[in-house]
Nucleic acid binder design. Structure first.
Ligand SMILES: [Zn+2]
Ligand SMILES: [Zn+2]
Length: 673
DNA sequence: AGCACGCCGACT
DNA sequence: GTCGGCGTGCTC
């Protein structure tokens, strides 16, 4: 979805000696503040950091390029100019203003998220920053290798892109299965931009995926900079300084790199455009993928969205002509995608029904690797009391506590991260007959260890996130035989020796009550299939399910993306979901149950509406209690962002005026769960 | 009474 | 975001 344009601010300069400042702080309503410059003979250019008094504190902020609304009170002097030069160029101010307006988030916090953390403190930058800013850029020594020639499909896609990229702005959706050579095409597109004297920004959904793309970009431009997990904070700050100096031709980074101050930007690439990580962020909700489109649109430069499993929304935009479509059919070298089979879970208690164990064994025998996806971390997800049939849940949240065996035997809440000793009595009825039920990744790792003694098993989930990169590298280097993990195992990593993949607990993913649940499950299955047999022939993937007749699983088995998209889009049109409407999710919460109960008891306080256009709810939120707050959800749908904003304001004022209820929102939420 | 906690308004 | 002022409800 291309966000609709925002009316631009009236062009006027602040009065002589006055400065508009955006503090790195959440000041609702009037975020831009006016200060006096005690030394009006010195011009402080927009984007310069200044220290300003705010209440009884001194905070850092940016001199802003548009004036603040007039203020009648007494103006205060700025406390000081922090840096000798701007750190946030004015073209990016427009993007921050737009993002803050569109997502209804404080622009000060958005600007703060755009800069290395140390820049939001009211302190001057160390000499090392300005040294990195000015010092000659160092090329990493590397073997110069020839890039492989383009396939016919790659050349065709490149030519099509080159022809269309300067015509009326429209994002490009580049579709291509894993191994189809999307990265090779990114290289050629970047080369084209560089040859015209432009720079290139490449975004990845998570920091762990930066390294391979950075490597690919360094092959065409040795001065490419990455923002990656191997860097220390200081290194990242110095990388920012080099980018700010205007000499870095290519930047590869995660969501936060969206605001990289590249000069002469000529191309933006958003890899894995379907990934929900572009949206998620606690407290500050904006979509980096969509803002990247906006940044490109502002500059009139091409933006390329790449994925093997695009959002249904993107598919629709291609069919409606709003996006250009590019595609790379098939894998390079004609290698086939693995065959996918649906395996009934069976009645046994084993999480690995036949023929999964034999196929893992066969893969082991051939000296190849297997990947098993189980979207559930911990050891066992449920502690059930056989006497009163309650499950142990978090005292602060309405969710089950998950039993973890490592690093300690504890009951952990996945919503608030609090942990508790494993009880020996049921806290509800004091019964002793407690049962651990179900299987999560840690237990699966244990089961596999017993089943295949001698096999080297590596687990990858949020609990192993710290050394996740090392574990993954070890597996890639062949230091493991079976990789077990949550959805991280399906993300874009290249795992050459994998020839067998298994997806467990697909039913849970499909049954999740959200309009995007089936798209996520479908995408995850095909992404896992993309990991399998990438460099070796004859791979296969098994999907374990209680519901082998489920059409979504059938389409995944047949790689029938078009049928899936058609069905999904028909359903979304009928029920009024994106891309046929814009969404906002409003969460009402309170430490007391009563205000939420009362809000829920009111039926349709905002009126009756047709499915795709109106204010719906409140309904109990998921989970209905989180971190000691009771929660309800209101969903807003509307054909235009303006209407969604108006309705949000209506909902916000309705509940905030009654007090006791905290109102939070997400514009264009990735999902409603 | 004393205090922790959450809520609310102010901040140029 | 962060601070102070103020009310609620709990403990010493
Ligand atoms: Zn019980
Ligand atoms: Zn909890």
């Amino acid at each position: 979805m291309v966000p609709t344009p925002v009316p631009s601010d009236p062009p006027s300069l602040p009065e002589e000696g006055l400065l508009t400042v955006l503090p790195f702080d959440a000041i609702p309503e009037i975020p831009l503040l006016t200060y006096r410059n005690p030394d009006p003979s010195t011009w402080i250019p927009p984007g310069t950091r200044v220290a300003v008094p705010l209440g009884r504190r001194t905070v850092a902020g940016l001199v802003w390029s548009v004036p603040a609304p007039p203020f009648d009170g007494t103006l205060r002097d700025i406390a000081g100019v922090l840096d000798p030069a701007p750190v946030f160029p004015s073209p990016l101010h427009t993007l921050v203003s737009f993002g803050a307006w569109y997502y209804k988030i404080p622009p000060g916090l958005l600007a703060k998220s755009a800069l290395p953390p140390s820049l939001s403190l009211p302190k001057s930058l160390p000499a090392s920053f300005w040294k990195a800013y000015g010092a000659p850029l160092e090329e990493e020594k590397r073997e110069w290798t020839d890039l492989p020639p383009l396939s016919l499909a790659q050349s065709d896609a490149l030519r099509e892109w080159e022809e269309k990229r300067h015509h009326p702005f429209a994002p490009f959706l580049l579709r291509g299965v894993t191994g189809s050579g999307k990265t090779r095409l990114y290289q050629e597109m970047a080369k084209t931009a560089l040859s015209e004297g432009s720079s290139v920004l490449v975004l990845t959904p998570e920091i762990g995926l930066v390294a391979p793309l950075l490597e690919a970009m360094r092959a065409i431009s040795p001065l490419a900079e990455g923002i990656h997990s191997a860097q220390t904070k200081a290194e990242r700050t110095r990388a920012f300084a080099r980018i700010l100096s205007g000499r870095v031709p290519v930047v590869v980074g995660p969501r936060s790199a969206l605001f990289s101050p590249l000069s002469r930007l000529g191309l933006i690439i958003v890899d894995e455009e379907h990934d929900p990580s572009y949206q998620a962020y606690e407290g500050l909700s904006f979509n980096a993928r969509n803002l990247a489109i906006r940044r490109a649109q502002d500059l009139g430069i091409p933006v390329v969205l790449g994925s093997a499993t695009p959002l249904s929304d993107s598919i629709f935009h291609v069919s409606s002509g709003r996006y250009h479509g590019l595609s790379l059919p098939g894998r390079i070298g004609g290698r086939s995608l693995p065959a996918i089979h649906l395996i009934p879970s069976g009645s046994g208690s084993s999480p690995l029904p036949d023929p999964v164990p034999e196929r893992i064994a066969a893969s082991l025998d051939r000296g190849e690797q297997s990947v098993i996806l189980l979207n559930r971390r911990g050891y066992v997800p449920t502690l059930l009391c056989r006497s009163c049939h309650t499950t142990l849940s978090c005292p602060s949240c309405a969710v089950r506590l998950v039993f973890h065996k490592v690093p300690d035997r504890r009951m952990i809440c996945h919503s608030c991260a609090s942990s508790y000793a494993v009880p020996s009595l049921c806290p509800t009825c004091l019964g002793r007959d407690l049962e651990l039920r179900g299987t999560a990744t840690q237990k699966l790792e244990e089961i596999l260890g017993k089943h295949f003694p001698g096999a080297r098993i590596i687990r990858l989930d949020a609990d192993s996130a710290q050394d996740g990169q090392e574990r993954l590298a070890a597996f890639r280097e062949g230091e493991g035989d079976i990789l077990v993990g949550t959805q991280v195992v399906a993300k874009g990593h290249d795992l050459p020796k994998v020839t067998y993949g298994v997806v467990l607990e697909t039913d849970g993913m499909l049954a999740f009550p959200d309009y995007r649940a089936s798209e996520r499950a479908f995408g995850l299955i095909l992404q896992l299939a993309g990991r399998v047999g990438r460099h070796r022939e004859g791979g296969q993937v098994d999907i374990v399910t209680r519901d082998p007749d489920n059409p979504v699983l059938g389409w995944a088995r047949d790689y029938n993306q078009e049928a899936f998209y058609k069905e999904t889009l028909d359903e979304r049109r009928l029920l009024g979901y994106p891309p046929f409407t814009r969404l906002a999710s409003v969460i009402l919460s309170s430490t007391h149950e009563a205000p939420i109960r009362e809000a829920l008891a009111e039926r349709s306080p905002f009126g009756k509406f047709p499915a795709g256009n109106g204010i719906f709810g409140p309904v109990p939120a998921l989970p209905p209690k989180l971190k000691n707050r009771y929660r309800a959800q209101v969903v807003i749908k509307g054909p235009t962002i303006g209407l969604v904003h108006n309705r949000l304001e209506q909902v916000r004022s309705y509940y905030q005026s009654r007090g006791k209820i905290l109102v939070e929102w997400q514009i264009d939420p990735f999902d409603l769960g």
